[in-house]
Design a protein around this nucleic acid. Structure first.
Length: 709
DNA sequence: CACCAATCCGATTTA
DNA sequence: CGGATTGGTG
C-alpha cells in the first residue's frame, strides 16, 4: 500500500517526513501539525523498510506516543507494534530494571512518587533535629524542591541557593546534610526517584559500553518530541543513544518551553545544530489550528519574548471571532461567568471541545463547585493525581512491599492507619522490620492486632507471587474495613477509585510493570471514554492538546503570572510562554478572564487584583473587551449602540435562545445539556430540583433552564 | 514529657 | 488536599 504523502502534507512537513537519516531538527510552531508530521515520518520509515523495533520514540506522555503510533498504523494499514516508546523515564526504567544489579541496586527497586519523596525528606529533617526550634527552617517541600532542582540543573546546591533563594543561604550546610542523607536513604532502601532514573541510566550507559552499543544498534532511529523541555542529562542520554546524531530527529518549539523549573534547557534545542553540525533544520510555520484572530493575539503575547528561532506563524483559516477579554467583579463571579459561557458555547460545541485552563490546580475550585451544583460533568487534569490520593497509595503500599521488603515509605503507610500508632512509633517499627528485630515486631503486633495481620498478609503474598489483580483482591479484603473507618464521609467516591484500580490491574500480569506504570504515567481515568466531558486543566497538562473553545481564568498578577515568578525576569519569561501555550490551544474561540478582586490572602476577604502584565501589554485591537457590572451583567466596552447590558445567559453568542430568569413554580423546562425535565421543587435562592429523563434528579440554577409555558 | 488526634487555613507547575 | 497549631492522653 503506497501513501500519497505529498497530498496530505505541506512542503515543510514533507521535507521533515522524507529527510534522510541524519540529524534533523524540526521547529514546530504551535498547531503546525507536529503530531501529524511525526506520524507520517513513522509511516514513511516503515514503508522504507525500517523495522518498527528499530525505532525509539520519546514523547512527553505515553498517550502522545500511542496517538502517533496509531495514526501511523492507520496510514500504512498495519500495526507498528515493535516501536519502543514512551517518556525518558519509562524508557530508563525498562533498561534499568534489567541492569539495576550492575549498579548495586536490587532488582525489585521501587520508584518513588512525589508524596514518598516528601515523606522521606520530612523524616530526615526531623531525625536530624533540624527546624525543631527554628520556625524559619525551610519546609520539606522547599528542601525537596531545591534538591531536585540542583540535580536537574546540575548546579551545586550552595550555588543554587545563592542564585535563587539567597535568604536560605544560612541553611546551606543543613540542607546539604539532608540532601546527602536522602541520597543514602534511597540506596539503602532500594528506591529511586524520578531524577535517579535518568542519572542512573546515564551511569549505566557509561559503565557498560557494550550495552550502549547494543541500544544503538537496536534503535538506529531515535525520535524525540517536545525537545525544548528536556534537561541536561536527557540531552546527554540522546547523545549516548545516537553517537553522531545520525538517525536522530528532534522536534520542538522554543516558544513553548515551560519546564525550566525542573531543569529544562531551551539551549538543548537552540544548540542542537552546533552539537550536530550536519543538522538539517525544518521549520513548520503554517498553523492549522487557530483562527487568524487568535493567532494575532498569541503573536502579540510572544512579541515581548526572547525567541531565538525566528518564527512566522500564519493561518489560512478565516479571520474568525476576536478573542474576548472579560473583566469580572471577583473570582467568585468569574466562576459564574465562566460556567455561563460554557453553557452558551455548549449550544454550538460538544463539551469535550471546550476547555477551562488555569495556572495552578486550586484555581479551578470555585468553577468546580459550580459545575457540581448544576450537575455538569467535567474532567480535571493536573493538580492532584489519581495515584496520589491517600486511599490508592495505601493499597499500592502493600503491593510495593511484596516486591521490595526494604521499601520504607511503603511500610510506613501500611501500618500508619492503625489507631494509636503515630509517626514516631511507625518509624521505630519500620526500623525494626528492616533490621529484623523480631522482638520489637512481636511486641507491637501483640499490642496492635492490625499490624500483625498486615505483616502476615504481605508475607503470604510474597510467597505466592500472585498476579496484580489477585494480589489487589486479597489486599482489598484486608483494607476495606480500615478504609471505611478512615474515610467515613466520602468512601463511596473513593471506592470507585479502588474499583478502577482493579480494572487497571487486570490488564497486567506483572506486578512490577503495573506499579511502575502507575508511578510514571498518570492513568487517564477514562473509564467512560465515550461520554462528553468538559475539560478543566492546568496549562502544563494542556500541552500538546487543542479545543475549539478555550477559557483561561485568573489572569491577574500573582496568579497568572504566578506570584513565585514575579521577581525574576527569566521566570516571568516562562510565565509568558505558558500563557502563549494556553492561548494557542484554541481553535475558534478564546476568552481571557480577569477578576478585579480575588478572594483570600490576608484579611480574610477579597483584595483588589491587578490584571496580568501580559494582558495589559496587549494592543487593544487584539481583543473585544467586556466588563461585568455589579448586577452581574456584561457590557461591551468601546462600542456605540450595543453598549446595552444583555440579560445573563444571552450575552455574547449571537443567535442565543432567550432565557427567562424568573422561575415559575413547577411545570416543565428545558436545559441545554439535559434536555426536557420536570420541575419537582423550588429551592430558594433561585434553584430548582428537576427530574430529567435519562439523567435523573438534578439541582440546577433557575437561570440555566428555559421554562416551558 | 512524648506522642497522637482533631481542626482550621492556605494553595505552583510535573515525570 | 497538606501543614501548622492546639488540645488531649498515657
Amino acid at each position: 500500500m503506497t501513501i500519497d504523502f505529498t497530498s496530505h502534507l505541506n512542503p515543510a512537513q514533507w521535507e521533515a517526513v522524507s529527510a534522510a537519516r541524519g540529524p534533523l531538527l524540526v521547529i514546530a510552531g504551535a498547531g503546525s501539525g507536529k503530531t501529524r508530521t511525526i506520524a507520517f515520518r513513522l509511516a514513511y520509515l516503515v514503508q522504507q523498510g525500517v523495522a518498527p523495533e528499530n525505532i525509539l520514540l520519546m514523547t512527553f506522555t505515553r498517550k502522545a506516543a500511542q496517538e502517533m503510533l496509531s495514526r501511523a498504523a492507520h496510514l500504512i494499514g498495519r500495526e507498528l507494534g515493535g516501536v519502543a516508546g514512551g517518556t525518558f523515564h519509562s524508557f530508563a526504567w525498562t533498561v534499568l530494571r534489567r541492569y539495576a544489579p550492575a549498579l548495586g541496586f536490587p532488582e525489585g527497586f521501587t520508584i518513588m512518587d512525589a508524596p514518598d519523596m516528601r515523606e522521606i525528606v520530612g523524616q530526615i529533617r526531623t531525625e536530624l533535629g533540624l527546624g525543631k526550634k527554628d520556625r524559619a527552617f525551610p519546609k520539606r517541600t522547599t528542601i525537596l524542591g531545591l534538591i531536585s532542582k540542583s540535580r536537574n540543573k546540575e548546579i551545586d546546591l550552595a550555588v543554587l541557593l545563592e542564585q535563587e533563594t539567597p535568604h536560605l543561604i544560612p541553611y546551606a550546610g543543613d540542607i546539604l546534610r539532608i540532601s546527602q542523607a536522602y541520597a543514602a536513604f534511597k540506596t539503602r532502601h532500594g528506591l529511586m526517584d524520578y531524577d535517579d532514573l535518568l542519572f542512573n541510566m546515564e551511569r549505566l550507559l557509561l559503565e557498560r559500553p557494550d550495552l550502549t552499543e547494543f541500544l544503538r544498534i537496536r534503535h538506529p532511529h531515535v525520535m524525540i518530541d517536545e525537545f525544548q523541555d528536556t534537561n541536561k542529562v536527557q540531552a546527554r542520554l540522546v547523545r549516548l543513544l545516537a553517537a553522531d546524531g545520525r538517525g536522530v530527529m528532534v522536534v520542538g518549539d522554543d516558544a513553548q518551553s515551560i519546564y525550566a523549573f525542573r531543569g529544562a534547557e531551551v539551549r538543548n534545542i537552540l544548540s542542537f545544530p552546533t552539537q550536530f553540525p550536519e543538522t538539517v533544520i525544518v521549520r513548520l510555520e503554517e498553523n492549522y489550528r487557530s483562527s487568524q484572530a487568535i493567532l494575532d493575539l498569541t503573536n502579540a503575547v510572544l512579541r515581548g519574548a526572547v525567541s531565538r528561532f525566528e518564527k512566522n506563524l500564519f493561518s489560512r483559516r478565516a479571520n474568525g471571532r476576536k478573542p474576548q477579554l472579560i473583566h469580572t467583579v471577583s473570582d467568585q463571579t468569574q466562576a459564574r461567568m465562566v460556567v455561563d459561557k460554557v453553557l452558551e458555547l455548549s449550544q454550538n460545541y460538544r463539551l469535550r471541545d471546550i476547555a477551562i485552563l488555569f495556572r495552578a490546580g486550586f484555581q479551578s475550585y470555585p468553577v468546580e463547585m459550580l459545575l457540581n451544583r448544576i450537575g455538569l460533568r467535567f474532567r480535571k487534569y493536573g493538580g492532584l493525581k489519581f495515584t496520589e490520593a491517600a486511599h490508592i497509595k495505601d493499597v499500592l503500599a502493600y503491593m510495593r512491599l511484596i516486591l521490595n521488603p526494604a521499601d520504607l515509605p511503603a511500610w510506613f503507610r501500611a501500618v500508619s492507619h492503625v489507631k494509636g500508632l503515630g509517626p514516631k512509633t511507625c518509624s521505630r517499627f519500620c526500623q525494626a522490620v528492616l533490621e529484623g528485630d523480631q522482638a520489637f515486631i512481636a511486641q507491637l503486633a501483640k499490642k496492635f492486632p492490625d499490624v500483625d495481620q498486615a505483616f502476615a498478609l504481605i508475607n503470604s503474598l510474597r510467597a505466592e507471587k500472585p498476579a496484580p489483580d489477585s494480589a489487589l483482591e486479597r489486599i482489598l479484603e484486608f483494607y476495606s474495613p480500615i478504609f471505611q473507618l478512615r474515610y467515613p464521609d466520602d468512601y463511596p467516591r473513593r471506592q470507585a477509585g479502588l474499583e478502577q484500580l482493579q480494572q487497571m490491574a487486570a490488564a497486567f500480569d506483572d506486578l512490577d510493570a503495573f506499579l511502575t506504570e502507575l508511578t510514571l504515567e498518570s492513568p487517564d481515568q477514562d473509564d467512560e471514554e465515550m461520554d462528553d466531558h468538559l475539560v478543566l486543566s492546568t496549562v502544563h497538562s494542556a500541552k500538546g492538546l487543542e479545543w475549539s473553545a478555550v477559557l483561561v481564568i485568573d489572569l491577574v498578577n500573582g496568579r497568572f503570572p504566578s506570584r513565585h515568578a514575579l521577581e525574576r525576569e527569566e521566570d516571568m519569561e516562562e510565565e509568558r510562554r505558558l500563557l502563549y501555550v494556553a492561548c494557542t490551544r484554541a481553535r475558534d474561540y478564546l476568552a481571557l478572564f480577569v477578576p478585579s478582586s480575588v478572594y483570600n490572602r490576608f484579611q480574610g476577604g477579597s483584595e483588589p487584583a491587578v490584571p496580568s502584565l501580559f494582558i495589559s501589554e496587549l494592543p487593544e485591537h487584539c481583543y473585544e473587551e467586556w466588563r461585568e457590572n455589579y448586577l452581574g451583567q456584561l457590557h461591551l466596552r468601546h462600542s456605540s449602540r450595543q453598549d446595552q447590558a444583555l440579560p445573563r445567559g444571552q450575552k455574547a453568542l449571537p443567535g442565543n435562545a432567550p432565557v427567562k430568569s424568573a422561575p415559575r413554580p413547577l411545570g416543565f423546562c428545558r436545559h441545554k445539556i439535559f434536555g426536557r425535565g420536570k420541575i419537582v421543587e423550588v429551592l430558594p435562592p433561585g434553584r430548582l430540583r428537576i427530574n430529567f429523563s435519562g439523567f435523573g434528579l438534578k439541582i440546577i440554577q433557575a437561570d440555566f433552564v428555559i421554562l416551558e409555558d
